[in-house]
Write a protein that binds this DNA or RNA. Structure first.
Lengths: 150, 150
DNA sequence: GCTTGTTAGTTACAAAAACAACTATTATTC
DNA sequence: GAATAATAGTTGTTTTTGTAACTAACAAGC
């Protein structure tokens, strides 16, 4: 215990604490976009993330998606089931290793992906527009560094 | 639909999408610290946030904490109850408006706050150390801007 | 001063997340 | 090649969150 016990205002600045700031910014920056995939497409965050990964990378396995986006396998499993029920993706067993299944977007899934992708790009541009081009680029680099994706 | 329907890799860069990057960075950057207040003090994120607010600002109401940290009142309510059960804070009814209650840390609560605060400061320094001083300052400014806390 | 509206905080119920245990299949080892 | 371990994915149970409805106290209008 390094401080006195009075009831006075302390000098630690919570809004300087990086994990707090990152969480606030992340939450706020997801809100508008979340509304789109949630209200318009009835999707959860994990679901659109899976959808996006498949849209971007084509055929993938659940495990690959989980590793890349750091999502737990049970969340992936349930998201995949939902997306399958909505006919946005199909599964096919891997021939050589029948534990594995390849996930692929259906045409309907691709349509939704492209729609959401367009909205995502616009939204990203809107956010990046708060800063100069250089600043935005630096921000992305720093975030990737913090997420250890570099 | 702006793209073709092939199964090839798409060119949208998920790891460039700001909400995604922010979420990854926020999650990753919270992990180590979360382990401390979770495993060592049995606290949830909302609980330590409430604790920190009280530690920093002294006496506050649930509403004030919620407004400042953008936490929903039901979450605050539950966190306050937990912290009260652990004897980290006490409530006293406001005289002039008996709907309101002032929250204050107990000595035990203050002790925990100071311990966690020290760890938080170290941890923040470790994160900020990934960047130059200027970069770190810019990062915080940008995050505050994104969270619209400016 | 009584009806109507607001506000601070709580509670109840539904949705989602976390964690552990499970099945089915492949890999390893003796 | 049978026994054991490891892996991909699923299912079940417990926590935690989100949402809406609630209580108690105050405020405003008439």
């Amino acid at each position: 215990m390094t401080n006195d016990d009075s009831d006075k205002k302390d000098d630690f600045e919570l809004q300087h604490f990086l994990p707090f700031l990152l969480n606030q910014a992340a939450e706020e920056s997801s809100l508008d976009f979340q509304r789109v995939y949630k209200n318009r497409y009835g999707m959860l965050r994990t679901e659109w993330r899976v959808l996006f990964h498949l849209g971007v990378f084509g055929q993938m396995t659940a495990k690959e998606i989980g590793a890349r986006a750091k999502i737990h396998k049970t969340k992936i499993s349930r998201a995949v089931r939902k997306l399958e029920q909505r006919r946005y993706l199909t599964r096919t067993r891997h021939q050589d290793d029948r534990r594995v299944e390849w996930l692929t977007l259906t045409p309907a899934g691709k349509t939704v992906y492209h729609e959401l992708r367009g909205i995502a790009e616009q939204y990203d541009a809107k956010l990046a527009n708060l800063f100069s081009t250089d600043e935005a680029a630096l921000l992305r680099r720093m975030l990737r560094r913090l997420a250890a994706m570099d």
